[in-house]
Write a protein that binds this DNA or RNA. Structure first.
Length: 139
DNA sequence: GCCAACGTTGGC
DNA sequence: GCCAACGTTGGC
């Protein structure tokens, strides 16, 4: 059973539309220990929700999957970073995007790190959220 | 653009 | 090892 994660990106830097063009992208440049530890735990086949941050209505805008084993980034200055390659499964049409405010409004999802730790950029999704979104998006 | 929250760095 | 100063992220 594949695990479900969420990864943030500022669309000014790398957007879901960029991802649609590239189809496979290297998820690197993560410098926070906690986020890096979650990347280390990625397994091939795990699903990663793509989230647009730093915008007016932050939201989950796409679904991808892990296609390579996580590797240490030898070019990282502090020598702590890891990366893996993600393949886009689907960019969500606007009416299927899931906004931060929707997630915040649901009392079942209050233990989601997306809410509890707003600066974290890579995180696992809690089981109840994973089940909810898998039903909603037919994953 | 502002600011809260949090992580990192470096002096002591 | 503590903590002040500083840097970064991301929501609003």
């Amino acid at each position: 059973m594949a695990n479900l994660f969420l990864a943030k990106t500022d669309p000014d830097t790398f957007s879901i539309h960029d991802f649609e063009l590239e189809k496979i992208t290297r998820w690197d440049g993560v410098h926070n220990y906690q986020a890096i530890n979650f990347i280390k735990n990625w397994q091939i086949g795990d699903l990663v929700l793509i989230y647009h941050s730093q915008i007016k209505n932050p939201a989950i805008v796409g679904i991808s999957k892990v296609v390579t084993k996580p590797e240490k980034d030898e070019n990282d200055k502090r020598n702590i970073s890891w990366f893996a390659d993600l393949e886009l499964i689907q960019a969500l049409p606007e009416d299927k995007q899931i906004t931060l405010s929707q997630i915040k409004a649901n009392p079942d999802f209050q233990d989601f790190l997306l809410i509890k730790q707003s600066r974290l950029s890579v995180m696992p999704c809690p089981d109840n959220f994973a089940n909810w979104i898998k039903t909603k998006l037919d994953l």
